[in-house]
Write a protein that binds this DNA or RNA. Structure first.
Length: 547
RNA sequence: GGCCUCAUCGUCUAAUGGUUAGGACAUCAGGUUUUCAUCCUGAAAAUCGGGGUUCGAUUCCCCGUGGGGCUACCA
């Protein structure tokens, strides 16, 4: 393979580069340990699909005592945004996705296989591509983008495959003299793979998720090194995942068609091919009713910031995502209600092969369950943290009423039957509004007449005793209901509805409206305990005056 | 257009060459609870279409159809 011409071209192209590339040491990991990575481009906010990919990658590494690292693919200087890297690193951090190596939110780097930012690895890509050129497996291409556009147009017109291959691959057979001459004129060059692929040839490939696949061999002389000296994704992937000793490449399935190119690159370099897992994207139904990938531009819910803003507990989003990866997660969760999600073993072969619709209703259900498992103190802390950023008024109130807040969150949060009404922290304000203000508007329920309402309120003020237990209070209240001609419970009422004015619930509704201004609230007794004697009596009397 | 890939209730999915095709969320109907959120019980709800192979196909094969992806010096 090595011939004088190729060596000459390689030297012309990269005169300053030592032609013996450095290899990285083996990672000394136990057998079966996976090395995975999340390798995003810093071109925008952290995408929920990115969290999905990162989460799976992190789980595959850590559940096998392997290594998970974060690599930044900033090889497209046009699309890069200023804050991109920090957004990604800190976003992963907020999701509790632990990065062992690579770039951290404070922009420091750790790990022995770096640098982990591709723009800092340019000499490495050059070193290895020089070898590829010298071996006769790559060559410089001096075509301008105008020329390439023209070629593509011609190909489209002739309805043949577009690309740089066969007779269209002008510089595939370039001589060292021509290279020297063009370089001498200061011409820019890109480096292309000299593909060995043959039209119609198939390659067998086993994907960790999609199983055995039959892909068309690559026959395109793909650009490996752009004329600005940056590698394309394909080359960077090959070099980095080899040097960083990645064992499992977990990425979006838009990369599936590139697999033949990637296997070709690994083979040409004589490197062991990593395993691949191609993930189907998370999709949504758009207005036209068709499925499409969550779009960065069109869908606010694509941005992880959306989940922070809405105040979905991170654990809930994580569990929802895990359920999307392996639908038996929820069965596991039922059996292990208090085990950290990290104990669940993710199996790639069980992952869905086609795109899953992001279901907010299901998320809410998962989230309610997650929140119901939290203690009052935990809920309070989470709400405070959220409000500090997204609801200043609520934050201020919580700061000066922390003890009461914990009592509020403790309502129906003990024992087996735990309250399940909070799906996200932005719901909380509505739930606790009547604690935050004494401006409670009492409206008499229609089915209770004024006289009866007056009686209920007057007598309740008298019978209420804050030293009573819940049972004692309920007994008294039930007695009052009976005295006023209401059924003591729904069963009695339903047995003979015509003999009663209503049932206990109707009596309670007057009280509930008086105390909170709403028809639905948590347990009245607990609620009154939190409000305290003074506020309860004040509110009842005010209601009485407003009848 | 070419190439690749995917296809089970509304949604996420399980299962198998022979099952009443299972579960979860949502929906609906009952029940429990002082209301609500829960919780319990029940109901409705699916193998994209057509061929083949087979005693038997939802499962295997082929052809359609539909979705998604790729077809850049973007990733």
């Amino acid at each position: 393979m090595v011939d004088a011409k190729s060596t000459k071209i390689a030297d012309l192209l990269f005169p300053d580069i030592e032609s013996v590339p450095d290899e990285t040491p083996d990672r000394n990991l136990p057998k079966g340990a996976a090395v995975t990575r999340y390798a995003p481009s810093p071109t925008g906010f952290l995408h929920i699909g990115g969290v999905y990919t990162a989460l799976i990658s992190e789980r595959m590494a850590h559940q096998s005592d392997g290594v998970f690292y974060l690599r930044i693919e900033d090889t497209d200087k046009q699309r890069e945004i200023a804050d991109g890297v920090r957004l990604i690193a800190s976003g992963l951090g907020k999701f509790g996705i632990r990065v062992d190596e690579g770039v951290h939110p404070d922009m420091t780097e750790t790990g022995a296989y770096g640098p982990y930012i591709q723009s800092e690895r340019l000499p490495i890509y050059h070193t290895f591509i020089k070898k590829l050129v010298a071996d006769g497996n790559a060559y410089p291409c001096f075509c301008t983008s105008e020329e390439l556009d023209q070629t593509r147009e011609t190909q489209e017109l002739q309805k043949i495959k577009t690309g740089y291959y066969g007779r269209w691959a002008k510089h595939r057979v370039i001589t060292s003299e021509e290279v020297e001459e063009r370089l001498g004129r200061g011409e820019q060059f890109a480096v292309r793979l000299k593909s060995r692929g043959v039209e119609g040839q198939k390659i067998k490939f086993t994907d960790l998720i999609k199983g055995d696949l039959n892909l068309s061999a690559n026959e395109n002389d793909a650009i490996l090194l752009k004329s600005d000296g940056y590698p394309t994704y394909h080359w960077a992937h090959c070099v980095d995942d080899h040097l960083m000793r990645t064992t499992q490449v977990i990425r979006g399935d838009e990369w599936l068609p590139s697999v033949p190119l990637h296997t070709e690159l690994f083979t040409l370099m004589g490197w062991e091919l990593p395993q691949y897992a191609h993930l189907a994207p998370i999709v949504k139904i758009d207005e036209a009713g068709s499925k499409r990938k969550l779009s960065k531009r069109k869908d606010p819910e694509a941005n992880v910031e959306y989940y922070f803003e809405q105040g979905y507990p991170i654990a809930a989003v994580t569990e929802y995502l895990l359920n999307l990866i392996n639908s038996d997660f929820e069965d596991w969760r039922r059996e292990h209600p208090d085990t950290p999600h990290t104990e669940f073993i993710v199996r790639l072969e069980k992952a869905n092969a086609s795109g899953a619709l992001f279901d907010f209703v299901k998320l809410a259900d998962v989230s309610k369950a997650v929140v119901s498992r939290m203690s009052a103190t935990e809920v309070c802390a989470a709400v405070i943290e959220w409000a500090n950023q997204y609801d200043a008024e609520l934050a201020a109130w919580l700061a000066s009423n922390r003890d009461e807040a914990i009592k509020i969150f403790a309502i129906e949060r003990t024992g087996e039957k735990r309250r399940k009404d909070i799906a996200k922290w932005s719901d909380v304000r509505e739930h606790i509004a009547y604690f935050m203000t004494d401006e409670v508007v009492f409206v008499r329920p229609e089915k209770i007449d004024t006289t009866t309402a007056t009686e209920i309120l007057t007598k309740t003020i008298v019978l209420i005793d804050f030293s009573d237990s819940a049972e004692e209070w309920l007994a008294k209240f039930r007695a009052l209901a009976t005295e006023l001609g209401f059924a003591p419970d729904t069963k009695t009422f339903k047995a003979a509805p015509e003999t009663f004015k209503g049932h206990l619930g109707d009596v309670a509704s007057v009280l509930r409206l008086a105390l909170t201004g709403r028809t639905n609230t948590p347990d009245l007794f607990e609620l009154m305990q939190v409000l305290g004697e003074q506020r309860v009596k004040e509110r009842l009397e005010r209601a009485l005056n407003n009848l």
